[in-house]
């Protein structure tokens, strides 16, 4: 077990989103969170990251796993600065998240942004910005990926890239939990239906 939810309930603004959620995710497993808008998919991922206190129940990690060394979060905001270069973003994340500066070029190449490395991030399209955010996953290897609608804005190639990234991550023993509206990644080991 890498990550477990015990009778978890979350509330936002005094309204309970869901209750009694139980989940045990082991190494190499891929979990998909489904639910209508407002069902609590983002809240669940933020609670696992430690940014939202559970209304009831608890979230447990395996020994040695904690947010500051083991988690990646791809959320609604890509965390980009318009005035900073595309490559500089990846170098920044490598430093901030404990990755290797040597893998910056490889990460940019893998997400298809190598040709834009020296340009400021403000010129990126919505999908390119998301590709840049995905470069975080490559430049700083971490075992648990929390992906909140990671395919938003991505084109067909981008979705194929993300699909392959999740597949390779889980095949290498990593864990991915994704809030998804479409089919993506390998065949899920867990499907959490909210709401």
């Amino acid at each position: 077990m890498i990550l477990a939810l015990h009778d978890l309930a979350l509330a936002r603004g005094g309204r309970v989103l869901f209750e009694n959620l139980n989940l045990r995710v082991a190494a190499g497993e891929f979990g998909v969170i489904r639910g209508r808008n407002g069902a609590g998919k983002t809240s669940l991922l933020r609670a696992i990251a430690g940014w939202l206190r559970p209304h009831a129940g608890r979230i447990a990690f395996a020994d040695g796993v904690d947010a500051s060394s083991s988690l990646h979060v791809i959320g609604h905001g890509d965390g980009l600065k318009g005035g900073l270069g595309v490559g500089a973003h990846v170098a920044y994340w490598a430093g901030l998240l404990g990755g290797e500066r040597a893998s910056v070029a490889r990460a940019l190449d893998q997400v298809g942004l190598a040709a834009l490395a020296d340009l400021p991030a403000r010129i990126l399209s919505r999908g390119q910005a998301r590709r840049l955010a995905l470069a975080r996953l490559i430049v700083a290897p971490r075992p648990i990926w929390l992906l909140d609608e990671p395919a938003a804005g991505l084109d067909g190639d981008g979705k194929a890239l993300l699909d392959a990234m999740i597949g390779a991550h889980c095949a290498a023993g990593g864990v991915a939990l994704a809030a998804l509206h479409e089919a993506l990644g390998p065949n899920p080991d867990h499907v959490v239906q909210l709401g």
Partner: peptide, 16 residues
């Protein structure tokens, strides 16, 4: 700006 853009989340994930 960091809070709106999601950059603060990344700072919270840092080992520092």
């Amino acid at each position: 700006a960091d809070l709106e853009e999601g950059g603060l989340d990344q700072m919270l994930l840092s080992p520092a």
